[in-house]
Amino acid sequence: MIWEAIIEPFLQFGFMRRALLGCIAIAVGATPVGVFLMLRRMSLTGDAMAHAILPGAAVGFLISGLSLGAMTIGGLVAGIVVAIASGMVSRLTTLKEDASLAAFYLISLALGVLIVSTRGSNVDLVHVLFGTVLALDNAALILLCSIASLSVFIVSIIFRPLVLECADPQFLRSVSKLSAVTHFTFLALVVMNLVAGFHALGTLMAVGIMILPAAAGRFWTSSIGGLMVISAATAVLSSVSGLLLSYHYSLPSGPSIILVAGILYGLSVIFGPAGGLVVQNLPRRHYKQ
């Protein structure tokens, strides 16, 4: 029974195994980035970046069809241009980062929609929007795994400056020139992981696997390392459960995965020991001093 429900779909179907591998790669690569996005109160930035990537990917798609390379490069270029441009505006002028980012991603989105509409709409574009996790080919899997590995590697290298840039940017600027480098490297990581995510989950759902597990993790631990482990585990669990749900009930897989992550988030909000609703409203024993 359990075997049939949980193990067999993966044993029987190659596309399920591929989907699982792709999702695990995304989970491992994107969640550490998501943890930092959340800690920097930039969760919505992730969303904005995802919107900024969409037109780039669409342009890549229009130029050379459903090509992995063209869409990846298009998405990366659009995302990085928006990240750098908005970062420059916020660092060089009085406009805050959120406002400048909103400005740039809206411009980018409008531009993308305009380009797409001049070439006529295409049904295949739905793949870009909502992903094709059940149709990942070898090249796509290699890309996802490479991006995940590179992302984990870079996060481990810039970990200390990144923590400092999040906790006390003023101090980092006063002792080191790494502040701007760290910031833009981090934004590049966000873009990279979103681009990886959209191949499987679509541009709109890719942010979900980044942010929801991190937000859920915050209710279980307050250490950064713990957050990364818990959120990665949450993301993997969501991927497996989401894929199985979509298999058994013929649901679209991307939204299923994100919804499971959403349910885990909801449970964490209620039952999480680190500031969850139940704990906060229970009378607790505490130290006398």
Binding site: L39, C166, A167, F171, I224
Partner: peptide, 10 residues
């Protein structure tokens, strides 16, 4: 006024 985020888990 330091820009330190006091809610940051450190």
């Amino acid at each position: 006024q330091s820009e330190i985020d006091r809610t940051f888990p450190i």
